[in-house]
Amino acid sequence: MMEPYCEKTLLKQVSAGDENAFKQLFEHHRNTIYSTAFTFTKLVELSEEIVQDVFLKVWLRRATLNDIQHFRPYLFAVTRNHVYKVLKQIAQNHKATVHLVDDELFVTNDIADLLIEKEYNSLL
C-alpha cells in the first residue's frame, strides 16, 4: 500500500536518488504537466513527450530539489519554459521548411520556364 503523498518528504527522497519516490512524484504531477503542455500544443504525442522531458529535467536536477520551497510552481515554470522551447523549435523548423519549399518552387518554375523557352525557340 502506498503511503500518503507528502511532497517535502518525496523531494528529499528524490534528491537522494530514490526512484520509487520519483515515481510517486511523477504519478502525482504528470496529468497537470500533460494538461499544461496540451493547452499550448494541442498535440497528444508532443504533450506526452513534454511530460517525459520535464520529468527527465527534474530527475537530472534532483540534487537541487531540497532547495525548492514550492514545487508545484517550480514544476509549472519548468514545463512552461520547455513548452516554449519546443514551440520555438517547431516554428523555426516550419520557417525553414517553408523557405525550402519556396526555393524549390522558384527553381522548379525556372526550370519549367527554361523548358518552355527552349520549346518556343525550337518551334521558331
Score class of each variant (00 low, 15 high):
E7R: 03
E7I: 05
K8H: 02
K8I: 06
L10Q: 05
L10V: 06
L11Q: 01
Q13D: 03
Q13L: 07
S15I: 13
A16W: 03
G17W: 04
G17H: 05
D18Y: 07
K23N: 09
Q24K: 09
F26M: 14
E27N: 12
E27R: 12
H29R: 06
H29W: 07
H29C: 03
N31P: 00
I33G: 02
S35N: 13
S35E: 09
S35D: 07
A37C: 09
A37F: 07
F38R: 14
F38V: 12
F40R: 15
T41R: 05
T41D: 03
K42Q: 09
L43G: 02
S47V: 14
E48L: 11
E48V: 09
E48C: 07
E49G: 11
I50V: 12
V51M: 05
Q52S: 07
F55C: 02
V58I: 13
V58D: 00
V58E: 01
V58S: 00
W59A: 12
L60A: 09
R62L: 08
A63I: 15
A63S: 14
A63L: 11
T64Y: 03
T64C: 10
T64V: 13
T64H: 06
L65S: 04
L65A: 05
N66D: 12
D67P: 01
H70I: 14
H70A: 14
R72K: 15
R72V: 12
R72S: 12
P73L: 13
P73T: 07
F76P: 03
T79R: 11
R80E: 12
R80S: 10
N81G: 11
N81K: 12
Y84Q: 14
K85F: 00
V86T: 08
Q89P: 02
N93H: 08
A96R: 10
V98W: 01
V98I: 10
H99A: 13
H99N: 14
L100S: 12
D102Q: 09
D103K: 11
E104P: 00
E104V: 04
F106D: 14
T108C: 06
D110Q: 14
D110R: 10
D110A: 10
I111C: 04
I111V: 13
D113T: 13
L114R: 13
I116L: 08
I116N: 05
E117S: 10
K118V: 05
K118P: 00
K118L: 04
E119S: 04
